[in-house]
Design a protein around this nucleic acid. Structure first.
Length: 271
DNA sequence: AGGTTGACCTGGACGC
DNA sequence: TGCGTCCAGGTCAACC
């Protein structure tokens, strides 16, 4: 499901609702693969902690926790493909596939719901705050962006998806930014010219900013903390449009596989 | 070490 | 209606 704009929308929505709340109790479904850290460590860190802030790092939602005034670690929620993080009154019935519930002091609950179970919960303790692996695409400079792909032999599309190089970009925004930059998804990352790299960075930052403004892309079941769908799917130029006409030149859009992921591009606009 | 592939899951869409 | 097949916003471990 969720890439940078969707995760940012969810994180901001949850932050606005639960910042400053104390977690009084934690329940889990006990499905082992949901927990990237030992479940006992997660329960121990969360129970009794206060939520200082909720934010996005890459595709992860990060809850910065405090006990009194002291930093008490970070709770990481990765939504996988179908994960949702909802804030609800406790009386509202739990949706199917709920895997964790954080009960708050005021009676509300933060619920992690994930039908496909590709999502992961974990805890870390990082001095100075968790920033994750990979570079943040919304703020990366042109200079730094140009160095990321030097000497890389993999396709630029696959490089964009590699979270240890650049974090937060997924299949939708990789395809959309490559289209807007006029670059073939299969082109070797290390062979992009500086001009192409500058165009790609500009396109990526523009597309991410626009998508955040529209609350992300709702392809099937993505919703924010209020259960509201995003609107950026209406702006997609290539993602999900294989076989349809390019909105810029009318050519039929092609579907290929790059880095194991379905990729749609315009053979005329992207060289 | 960098790059590629398949496995991990459920459910929705589609074809017969 | 029902069953089978394919596909999906993402990672990772296991391979080459």
């Amino acid at each position: 499901m969720p890439e940078l704009p969707e995760v940012e929308t969810v994180a901001n929505g949850v932050d606005a609702r639960v910042r400053g709340q104390k977690i009084v109790r934690v329940w889990t479904s006990g499905k082992p693969q949901t927990f990237k850290s030992p479940e006992t460590e997660i329960l121990e860190m969360l129970t009794g902690a206060k939520i200082d802030r909720v934010r996005r790092v890459g595709k992860s939602i990060v809850m910065d926790l405090v006990r009194g005034k002291a930093a008490a670690g970070q709770f990481l929620v990765h939504l996988g493909m179908t994960g949702r993080l909802l804030v609800s009154q406790a009386e509202v019935p739990l949706p199917p596939h709920t895997h964790a519930v954080l009960s708050l002091a005021d009676g509300r609950e933060v619920r992690f719901v994930d039908p496909r179970r590709f999502g992961r919960l974990s805890v870390v303790t990082v001095e100075g705050g968790y920033e994750g692996p990979g570079v943040e695409p919304t703020t990366v400079t042109a200079e730094e962006f140009a160095t990321l792909f030097k000497g890389r032999k993999l396709a630029i599309k696959a490089a964009l998806l590699n979270q240890s190089i650049l974090h937060g970009v997924g299949n939708i925004y990789a395809d959309e930014s490559l289209f807007r930059a006029g670059i073939r998804p299969r082109k070797q990352a290390g062979k992009l010219t500086r001009g192409e790299l500058d165009r790609l960075r500009a396109a990526l930052q523009q597309v991410l900013a626009h998508a955040i403004k529209l609350g992300g892309s709702s392809v099937s079941d993505y919703v924010d903390a209020d259960g509201i769908r995003g609107f950026f799917q209406l702006e997609h130029k290539v993602y999900g449009r294989a076989g349809e006409a390019c909105k810029d030149c009318g050519t039929g859009l092609k579907k290929i596989v790059v880095g194991g992921r379905t990729t749609v591009y315009c053979p005329v606009c992207q060289r």
